[in-house]
């Protein structure tokens, strides 16, 4: 695996040190018409950590990720990425800036094989021009093989060798989630956003997935933002937790501290509160 780790070689990486602030959101608010999804939220994600984002249903967690990777544009607030305030940015620009993402509802390319799904994730790193691609020769062929090798490393890492050539539409849900992680990893992101990567999985699958997430974080040094409902998983995996409720931030800190906070307990018990 170690050949694959060298972060300095990863294109689009900042070479930031562990512990520096990689991403910061300041006073971000997002509304859809009258519905306020996010209200005045600020928090940061530091290089190398696993940052959990938790909260009850509809709290605004997914919306937060969508803001981070440029899918939604907040009406207020700023996003600072690698120390620079980011202008309004399209999702593909966020992708080429080193932000990758998995989805709450699996969003794979259903008609393609596992291999092609993951290969698509390497598209940003492929450079050969149209003419070479027409010929599938020279630089284009060299590049295909080079990236295929990387993809095979990821396939080995996530233990999905057996389903390499299977169209992903035919795979069971748990494996689809794994392929989606593989596709995101293929981008060699600096920040990986995972939206409920374990939803709908059985205990064994959850354990596997937890192990993969930790391995990604520790072996590749990838910074991870993780949305998860299973508190056990959150406690085990994350370094710091931010808690959202009705679009507001109600707690932020190490897992045990957050878990003990009265606001958080109330939010999860559904204690009514004034808006």
């Amino acid at each position: 695996m170690s050949a694959f780790v060298d972060p300095a070689r990863m294109a689009g990486h900042s070479g930031m040190e562990k512990g520096e602030v990689l991403l910061r959101v300041d006073n971000v608010s997002l509304a859809f018409g009258g519905v306020k999804a996010i209200t005045n939220i600020s928090f940061d994600i530091v290089k190398g950590e696993v940052r959990a984002i938790i909260g009850p249903n509809g709290a605004g967690k997914t919306s937060m990720l969508n803001v981070i990777n440029g899918f939604y544009h907040p009406q207020e607030g700023t996003i600072t990425w690698r120390g620079k305030v980011r202008r309004k940015m399209k999702p593909y620009e966020a992708a080429s800036n080193g932000i990758a993402r998995t989805f709450q509802n699996v969003a794979l390319f259903k008609g393609m094989t596992t291999l092609d799904n993951i290969m698509t994730g390497r598209g940003l790193k492929m450079k050969s021009n149209f003419i070479w691609q027409c010929l599938h020769w020279g630089p284009a062929l060299k590049e295909e093989i080079e990236h295929r090798r990387k993809v095979e490393e990821i396939i080995d890492f996530l233990e999905i060798q057996a389903i390499r050539k299977t169209p992903v539409g035919r795979l069971p849900y748990g494996l689809q989630k794994r392929v989606e992680l593989a596709r995101a990893l293929a981008m060699e992101p600096e920040l990986l956003l995972l939206d409920e990567p374990m939803a709908g999985m059985n205990l064994e699958e959850k354990e596997d997935m937890s192990r993969f997430i930790l391995d990604v974080n520790q072996q590749f040094g990838t910074t991870i933002a993780l949305i998860e409902h299973d508190m056990g998983v959150v406690m085990d995996l994350s370094d710091r937790v931010v808690v959202l409720d009705y679009g507001r931030k109600i707690a932020d800190g190490p897992p045990d501290e957050v878990q003990a906070s009265q606001d958080v307990i109330d939010a999860y018990l559904g204690v009514p509160h004034e808006h």
Binding site: F71, Y92, A100, K110, G111, M119, T120, G123, S128, Q133
Partner: peptide, 20 residues
């Protein structure tokens, strides 16, 4: 690469955009 990008747009355009 181009063909995979075409199919990515066909199968799930939002996800395609988010991977670049």
């Amino acid at each position: 690469r181009l063909g995979r990008n075409w199919m990515a747009i066909r199968d799930m355009d939002i996800a395609a955009e988010l991977i670049g």
